[in-house]
């Protein structure tokens, strides 16, 4: 069994979201709390910009929740930078316990699962879960300098410049986390670093399938099944893979990466990054859940666990996906 069902059902009492200008232009942009006019957020480096973005999101979530800083037990957060510096550096501004997580782009659901478990066990009363990513800081770490004149292959994705934070509490009103399924690391031997969606699709398939089987539900029981950053091609792979296993999620499935941009320039497959699922979930979907337009959803963040070193040493790309079930 990899599925947890929470008895006390932790409540998402508030969210805070921050993004760069490009993300503000899309469909999701209207729901984001703070859209910056420039992607440096007034800082000198992109790493500092990401830190500020995450800090702003956490601060906003904290303000909206009307819970005092000293009543928060822990911040659980992660990002894509080496040694998750955006998370740790933004958390040093708070007088709150800190847990750093890393599961690449699946960090958001991982932090949600951990936070919900702490609350459900009765150890903590309030927890903040957050993740962030920044296009320019990710680009310089994983790929090429920004000004290098090279083309992007059609399978590439665009790392989302954005951060999302939410406050989980054991009391209050709002959407509740009712269950979760922990994913396992799956590697089908994809080695193309531009094709991360193909590396992540099998993990999403596995975790969704496991959740259906272990909770004895079917796709029809959910209003939406939201994946993190599979992109257009990855979504197609996921639907095919699940269809092969006997689950048809054609009607329920949406992908945060596909949703976030008006694909015009060269985002190609859509958004990706640790901030993708947290930004879209904390803004757009949280809003819909609060208005009760959605009742029962699955959030599946997917992550490709590669580093620039592993891919240069000819390793294949393992993937991970965690699932969280949210009800309003």
């Amino acid at each position: 069994m990899r599925t947890i069902s929470f008895k006390n059902k932790p409540v998402i009492v508030a969210t805070g979201t921050t993004s760069g200008p490009k993300e503000g232009l899309g469909e999701v942009g209207k729901y984001i709390d703070y859209v910056s006019k420039d992607d440096t957020f007034g800082e000198k480096t992109f790493e500092k910009a990401e830190t500020k973005m995450l800090y702003t999101s956490i601060k906003q979530a904290l303000e909206f929740s009307k819970i005092k800083e000293e009543d928060i037990n822990a911040i659980i957060s992660g990002d894509l930078l080496n040694q998750i510096i955006a998370s740790t550096f933004s958390a040093r501004n708070f007088n709150i316990g800190f847990l750093g997580v890393y599961n690449a782009c699946a960090s958001f659901t991982e932090s949600l699962i951990l936070g919900a478990t702490f609350l459900d066990g009765g150890y903590f009363n309030n927890v903040i879960c957050a993740t962030s990513s920044h296009f320019s800081s990710a680009e310089r770490q994983y790929r090429y300098p920004l000004e290098l004149g090279c083309t992007r292959p059609p399978l590439s994705q665009w790392t989302v410049t954005g951060a999302g934070a939410l406050v989980l509490s054991n009391k209050g009103n709002g959407p509740k986390i009712v269950g979760a399924t922990i994913g396992k690391i799956i590697d089908y031997g994809v080695s193309d670093t531009n094709n991360m969606c193909a590396a992540m699709a099998p993990c999403a398939m596995d975790v969704i399938k496991t959740h259906f089987i272990e909770t004895n539900t079917s796709p029809k029981d959910y209003d939406l099944i939201i994946t993190g950053d599979l992109g257009a091609f990855g979504s197609r792979l996921l639907k095919d893979l699940l269809w092969e296993k006997g689950f048809d999620i054609q009607k329920q499935h949406v992908d945060c990466g596909e949703l976030i941009y008006n694909i015009k320039e060269d985002e190609f497959q859509g958004g990706s990054g640790a901030g993708c699922s947290s930004l879209v979930f904390c803004s757009y979907f949280y809003n819909k859940l609060k208005l009760k337009k959605l009742n029962r959803i699955l959030l599946v963040s997917t992550g490709a666990l590669l580093s620039s070193v592993s891919s240069q040493q000819n390793e294949t790309i393992p993937g991970i996906a965690h699932l969280v079930e949210v009800e309003c």
Partner: peptide, 12 residues
Amino acid sequence: YLTYVHYNSPKT
């Protein structure tokens, strides 16, 4: 899986 991905992925 790799063959399936290869034949279905968008090409340059």
